[in-house]
Nucleic acid binder design. Structure first.
Lengths: 243, 243
DNA sequence: ACTCAAATCATATATGATATATAATATGTG
DNA sequence: CACATATTATATATCATATATGATTTGAGT
């Protein structure tokens, strides 16, 4: 059995529990929860992979997944296709799916791309983020610092960064950055396990970034985000290429 | 019937006919042609969409596709999932697939991202491109200028730009740029149909870019690529928002 | 007889086809 | 507007086929 977790696959709407201030005046975001099995499996597997429950190299056998998730292989296959397109798994014809193992060269390229896009991202988001979103982000940081479980921390971390992408839920820039960040996350688990102190530095960097967003200081925010990214890459280098 | 084209879906290995110089001393690249129906359909549909044979808004009905392509819906569905992930089609649950129609705002964002990544791309590719590849690229330009069919020109254009991405066949940077470029191509067809003179300017810009690559002038190449991208966006603005 | 490579075979798994059922959406009709 | 109908996607189940992988056997050369 690959996954211990039982159904339901459909999870809570908002990983943060929602912002009370926001929900007072707006409709509660209208169920972003997937309505198809395929979407459920995709989300479920993506989270399991990012959280480290399915570490790189894990084989994902269609029949086994269908068995543990109590459904037919059809939605499983389509979920795997989707995750493959996101770069989280490697899908070889007639050989099956394996959770992707990023190489150091790959990580370096990903961080180069992210670094090139970050100034754009900060510039396009910092002026449009609502104070409600920033409050949610701050609550997330509180939650993260108190979170004992590393897997859960990673989920919250993803949500924090997603918030900083701004109010545009659908944006190619956001999409690209999210995907690249997700692939990098494949490795973060390993890194954090070997160097637990990294989490504390990340927490501190998040605070600083949030502060820059609050004052809408684009240059400062950009600079902090870049160093944040860079420190992650540096720790990756230390683990993967300890010379 | 959606597609006039009959099988075989499996197409020629190299769209350019290969480089005789390269094949003399190396193994002929070992069949990159897809071996599964799903991969065949994906490639087939992607080309049909990019070439403009399936213009934006076209509905892609699974049963019809299965019928015209002489296969079951299973590989069709997975191909659609893949293309949806690439942003070429919109896939709504229980509603089906439609060839994506990019908005002007979307195109502007895509070109912003491409512009941000182009310096990186040029820098990482210009020093590593082989002279054989550049010769192939030049042959492509000859072919493009002589090509009467716009759809075919677009295929060749894609191949030309792919060549300039360098020898790294698998690279996240290349992948991201290719995807964004493909989405933009959805619109290029329309633009070219309304303003046929654009093709000539594009041809000229391609020549200049290639020249800069030949002399390995990074700054010049970057500058030319950016203006090339920008002229495409400008024409998009003229067609979509003719004020 | 021994070693190593090639061929063979069995198994696991993905891929593809088909049939059927259900659910959601779109469309037409009253 | 309500309702029935048609269309289509989604999901399940079952099966046949194709491919990859590993174990086993075979066989040639030493």
């Amino acid at each position: 059995m690959i996954l211990d977790h039982r159904l339901p696959l459909v999870e809570e709407r908002s990983p943060v529990g929602g912002n009370p201030l926001a929900t007072k005046h707006t409709i509660p975001k209208l169920a972003p929860s997937p309505r198809t099995s395929q979407a459920n499996v995709t989300q479920h597997l993506r989270r399991a992979i990012l959280a480290g429950h399915l570490p790189p190299g894990t084989r994902l056998v269609q029949a086994d997944l269908a068995d543990s998730l109590q459904m037919s292989v059809t939605p499983i296959r389509e979920a795997l296709r989707q995750l493959s397109s996101e770069g989280l798994i490697d899908l070889d014809a007639f050989r099956g799916a394996v959770v992707h193992t990023p190489t150091l060269a790959e990580l370096e390229e990903i961080f180069e791309i992210r670094a090139a896009l970050m100034p754009l991202s900060v510039r396009k988001s910092i002026g449009y983020i609502t104070s409600a979103q920033l409050q949610t982000a701050e609550a997330l940081l509180d939650q993260m610092e108190a979170e004992p479980d590393q897997a859960e921390w990673i989920v919250l971390n993803r949500e924090f960064h997603r918030l900083l992408y701004g109010p545009m839920t659908t944006s190619h820039l956001h999409n690209v950055l999210q995907r690249l960040s997700d692939i990098a996350t494949l490795y973060i688990n390993l890194s954090f396990t070997q160097h637990p102190d990294q989490r504390a530095s990340a927490d501190a960097e998040h605070r600083a970034i949030l502060a820059a967003y609050l004052t809408q200081d684009v240059d400062q925010a950009t600079h902090l985000v870049l160093t944040h990214i860079n420190s992650t890459l540096e720790s990756a280098r230390m683990v993967l290429d300890p010379n």
